[in-house]
Simulated assay, not measured.
Amino acid sequence: MRLARLSAEKRKSSSMQYVKFDDHVISDIEKSLESWQHVSPPTADQEESSMHQDMDSKHCSEAWRNGLLLYVYRAFRWEPGHNIPVRVTRLARATADHVFACREDNSLVAKQALLPLFFAGCELMDESTRRKILRLCSLWDEVTRYHMINSTVPLLKEVWAEQEERGFDNVWWGEVVDRMYAAEESHGGVLQVRLCFG
């Protein structure tokens, strides 16, 4: 939430002539995310079920950590038209891989990483990984029928279509989501969950 608020502040400051956004707070958050490590509870290795729970929690946490680093890059570092560094693609792949590593059956943990998985999906051009993301979102949607999961696949497809049309390096997926939200709102639609990527 803090990053989303800071992104909105950065956007406002960019339209003001005498205001400059202070990047130091973003650098501090980025360093904190890069140095963070999962700490297993003492009970994690007492039996197999607790070990699996701990591993799922670790993968979910790592998905969030990498996903937030993706968001930091796109919202605060990237300029439209500039090449996306391989480091960002690596973060996206790591995010997706951590979500994929969580157990699908009897585990609600992986679904908690939907937002980082969306971030990763927007950053990856690899068709195989995109198909896995769509399959996982569809599976979660079948099980939960939760609005946010249901809306992820159309959002991803819209981002991918725009990347195809305008070029991968020219599309900020936050703008695509914001535009879709604004369009639905202007037509009197009710979006149950407000999405704000800055």
Rank of each mutant, 00 (worst) to 15 (best):
G174C: 01
S40K: 09
S61M: 08
F100L: 14
A75S: 12
S107M: 05
A101V: 00
K10Q: 05
E30T: 11
E158Q: 13
E9D: 13
F100V: 07
P154S: 01
V143M: 11
L136I: 06
N106V: 05
I29W: 03
A101Y: 00
W64C: 01
E127P: 06
D45M: 11
S186W: 06
H98L: 05
L91K: 02
K10E: 03
H187N: 15
H82N: 15
I149W: 00
E127I: 08
I133K: 03
A183D: 15
E184D: 13
E104I: 07
F76A: 04
R166L: 14
F100D: 08
L6H: 04
N150M: 11
A63C: 03
L155G: 10
V193I: 14
T95Q: 00
R11L: 12
I29G: 01
V190C: 09
D169H: 10
L3V: 02
V177T: 07
P80A: 11
D45L: 10
M148D: 13
S107F: 02
W64E: 02
Y146R: 04
L91C: 04
P85V: 09
A96E: 05
L70Y: 00
T43R: 08
W64I: 05
F100G: 05
K58I: 05
T89G: 13
R135Y: 13
E48P: 03
D178N: 06
W36H: 09
G81W: 04
R93L: 12
A110K: 01
R179E: 15
R130T: 07
E184V: 11
S13G: 06
S14D: 13
H59I: 02
Y18A: 13
Q53E: 13
L155Q: 12
A96Y: 02
D169A: 09
E164M: 07
E30P: 00
Y71L: 02
K132P: 02
L3Q: 02
R135W: 12
A4M: 12
Y71N: 03
E162P: 01
D169Q: 08
E30F: 06
S57H: 09
E9I: 08
H24D: 14
R65A: 03
R74G: 04
R131K: 15
F168T: 06
R131F: 09
A44V: 03
E184W: 08
L91P: 00
W160K: 02
L191Q: 12
I133W: 01
Q17C: 08
L91Y: 08
